[in-house]
């Protein structure tokens, strides 16, 4: 299997504070990788480094075959990103958002037009093509935002708490989109506060105080910690945390 993310002793320090402490892991192509941790455990900092937005203090990281320190621009071109806080421009229409983000990633106009039609059809959004994003229900927005994030067929898509505040049915449909993307070979790197969502992941890592304290399939983690579900696993690990910070 091809490895698309590989870190080796990745560390980020802010003054005396070690936000990310020597983390090493690998993620394979097409894998759904859950990146869990309590608030302030260092998830966001680690994710920023992997997206080429922040330089590591020490250690190495390769994303989509590029070094995150030497070639951050190439890293950015090979990934997609979506978060709960920012996803789409509310005051642009649905097709305008797609056009914009596809353009940013250098897709050709003709390809964009063709793919836009296919995407709207697949999502059942044909009638919303000319709607402003702000008029869509939250769940639709999140689904559209995800589709836009993978529109340019990135090698990896980073999702930062993508399903916060969404109703249960939409949350599941959202995960179905994630499955489809993974089936197409797109690697999915996702953080979440919903512990049931951790079960959807192929493998899960749990960060505590800047370190990765556990990394395995949900099944083995449950066995290892003698737990019924991921919630219990998470609690056993996160309870040991010395720090909690935002």
């Amino acid at each position: 299997m091809k490895i698309v993310i590989q870190t080796d002793g990745l560390t980020k320090q802010f003054g005396n504070f070690t936000a990310v402490d020597n983390i090493s892991f690998k993620v394979q192509k097409g894998e759904i990788f859950g990146f869990l941790g309590a608030n302030g455990a260092g998830k966001t900092t680690a994710m920023r480094m992997l997206c080429g937005l922040s330089l590591p203090t020490s250690g190495k990281g390769m994303v989509a075959g590029y070094d995150i320190e030497q070639e951050p621009e190439k890293v950015k071109r090979s990934i997609g990103y979506m978060s709960q806080k920012f996803s789409l421009y509310e005051d642009l229409k649905v097709w305008e958002n797609i056009r914009l983000f596809a353009g940013i990633y250098g897709m050709k106009s003709k390809d964009i037009a063709l793919k836009t039609d296919a995407l709207l059809k697949q999502l059942g959004f044909e009638s919303e093509r000319d709607s402003y994003v702000k008029s869509l229900p939250l769940g639709w927005k999140q689904k559209l935002a995800f589709s836009v994030a993978i529109f340019h067929e990135p090698k990896i898509v980073f999702l930062d708490e993508p399903t916060g505040g969404v109703d249960p049915a939409t949350r599941r449909q959202f995960w179905e989109l994630i499955y489809e993307a993974a089936d197409r070979g797109i690697t999915v790197f996702v953080t979440t506060h919903y512990m049931d969502e951790a079960e959807y992941c192929d493998r899960v890592s749990i960060m505590v105080d800047g370190r990765i304290d556990a990394l395995d399939t949900p099944k083995s983690l449950k066995n290892q910690f003698n737990a019924n579900n991921m919630d219990e696993v998470f609690h056993q690990l996160a309870r040991k945390a010395q720090r909690s910070d935002n």
Binding site: A38, N39, G165, H193, M195, F234, H235, A238, S244
Partner: peptide, 10 residues
């Protein structure tokens, strides 16, 4: 508890 991790929520 929105946006708060499961341990703090509990």
């Amino acid at each position: 508890t929105t946006g708060v991790d499961p341990v703090s929520r509990k």
